[in-house]
Simulated scan of single mutants.
Amino acid sequence: MRILASPTLRRACVAGLLAALATACSTESVMSLRPDVDVGTRTAGVPAAIPITPVPADPIVSVPTDETAQTPADPSPAPADPSLTAYPHFEMPAEPVEVMPSDEVACRRDLKRLGVEFRDLDPIHEGGCGIDWPVQVSAIGSVEMKPAATLSCAMAATFSRWTRKELVPAARWRYLSGVKAIHQGSSYSCRNIRGSRGTPSQHSRGNALDVMRIELNNGRDIDVRKPGWFAFRQRGFLNTVRQDGCDYFTTVLGPGYNADHADHFHFDIMQRRNGYVACR
């Protein structure tokens, strides 16, 4: 027992034991323990592979975790341009609307009281001519204006007042008939006074109207041109029209004044010094 206990003897015994184990556990000895099998195209004892039809995988659905879960989106639609949300929205200022002066408003009320059929037109500005607040007159009561006249409201009101208070009564007195239509030859027109050195005509301001003839309800058509020597009634009527016009207009020119006015009456409301009226 004491011999076995010595370190040298113990190491020798351990070495011998390890060598014996290595010899017993060699590859050849291990392979000799295999069962006799017939190794063919497939391993014996392993059943043939059964064909398996692949099953399509379910679509992957991303489920947010607690950390990635978000609150439901705002149902209101997103702006078309996200960049607009980063800056304040400014609207372009609207163009100022020009307000009709009070005298023009009052003038239109006057036209309505006189029974004038008219419509407002856009402002007229062409060169040195124009009307800021023009109206187009198509009738004065039952009296038609042919063609419709483009005038300043002040001229339209003056002419309408003269038509109702002077022209129509004169026709009834002389011809026992009302006036059907006034045939005018020129209302607004951008031009100078003929023969002048660039002096604008009152037509260029809408403050003048030329009357060529007057049509009555009884079918008579009175031409403004100077009547014959024996046309006493027509002569008297035209003289009355001319004379009464001087109480309403600042200028009344007609046949006999000059060649330019031989076939019509010219009426205007030109502002003159000291209230001068040219009635010729």
Rank of each mutant, 00 (worst) to 15 (best):
R242L: 08
K165G: 01
D122N: 10
D122G: 14
S62R: 12
G206C: 09
R11K: 10
E95Q: 06
R197L: 13
Q202N: 05
D58Q: 09
V277R: 15
G115L: 06
F265R: 02
C129M: 09
A170F: 04
S196K: 01
P93N: 03
G127E: 12
S187A: 15
Q184L: 03
P54W: 13
I124D: 08
F265P: 03
C190V: 02
D210K: 13
P101E: 11
P200H: 12
L167T: 00
V61E: 13
G195Q: 00
R191M: 03
V241W: 04
S152H: 02
A57Y: 05
R11M: 04
R172Q: 08
R164Q: 15
P255D: 10
F230V: 12
A69Q: 04
S102P: 07
E144K: 15
D132C: 05
T150P: 01
D221F: 03
R2K: 02
D81Y: 02
V116Y: 07
D132M: 14
R191W: 01
K180R: 15
A139Y: 10
D247I: 05
N192L: 06
F267Q: 07
A94C: 03
A171H: 03
V55C: 07
F237H: 08
V37S: 06
S177G: 01
F249G: 14
Q234T: 13
A73P: 05
S29Q: 08
R205S: 15
D66M: 08
C246R: 03
G127H: 10
S160P: 15
E144R: 14
P56Q: 06
P169R: 01
V46D: 00
G141F: 05
V135Q: 06
F90N: 00
L151H: 00
R10F: 14
M212P: 02
R242H: 13
N217Q: 15
V55Q: 13
G256P: 00
G178E: 00
L121G: 09
V224A: 10
L151P: 00
P200G: 08
H89W: 12
P7I: 12
R272Y: 01
G115V: 03
P255E: 09
D120W: 01
R191Y: 02
D58M: 08
T23Q: 10
G228N: 11
D244M: 13
A73L: 07
H266R: 00
V63D: 05
P51A: 12
H266F: 02
V224S: 11
L17W: 11
A24H: 03
R119E: 14
P123Q: 08
P79H: 09
T71M: 12
A80E: 13
